[in-house]
């Protein structure tokens, strides 16, 4: 099988109406791996969570830039979402299900939990005062390109 590589980079300002733009763009890029509808939904949701975190927590709804990089290598997509915001003091605590540093905003505290269950791998690197980078990967499980058709299996 041919090794397939491709890359994209997108920079957005931290405005909430860019959340949809970011997830749709990454989903469109991922489409070349021929994912299932469910796999696309997983990727869109994970991207939306990470971008929203940058806007609400990284920049606290203020001004800033968010960089979204995606790379395809064979049948895996690698996505990196980074901001230059205030950073996360304790990443392990932030990742706990239902934990939110902003309960007044009706946040569910499920962002990292969703990223971790919808993607194969999630890595969070953060330095207080410098920013946060979320790296995720997901393998697109392609159906066999040469499915055995019924006639063949009966004859063999």
């Amino acid at each position: 099988m041919n090794k397939f590589e491709n890359e994209m980079k997108l920079e957005i300002v931290s405005k909430s109406n860019n959340e949809a733009f970011a997830r749709i763009t990454v989903a469109a890029f991922a489409a070349q791996l021929d994912p299932t509808i469910e796999e696309i939904a997983d990727i869109k949701t994970a991207v939306s969570e990470a971008v929203t975190n940058s806007i609400i927590h990284g920049y606290e709804n203020g001004e800033g830039k968010i960089t979204i990089k995606a790379k395809i290598s064979e049948n895996t997509i690698y996505i990196e979402i980074s901001d230059l915001g205030k950073g996360i003091e304790d990443v392990e605590t932030a990742k706990q299900p239902l934990y939110t540093s902003k309960p007044d905003l009706e946040r569910s505290g499920m962002g990292f939990t969703i990223m971790e269950s919808f993607m194969d791998e999630v890595k969070v690197e953060s330095i207080v005062g410098l920013g946060t980078k979320v790296s995720m990967k997901k393998k697109i499980k392609k159906e066999s390109l040469n499915p055995i058709n019924e006639g063949d299996s009966i004859n063999s």
């Binding site: 949701t45 939306s48 969570e49 929203t52 009706e106 946040r107 569910s108 962002g111 969703i114």
Partner: peptide, 13 residues
Amino acid sequence: SFMDSAGIGMLLG
């Protein structure tokens, strides 16, 4: 067609 965890917070509220 799409909802992320912000929808969960909204529904719980």
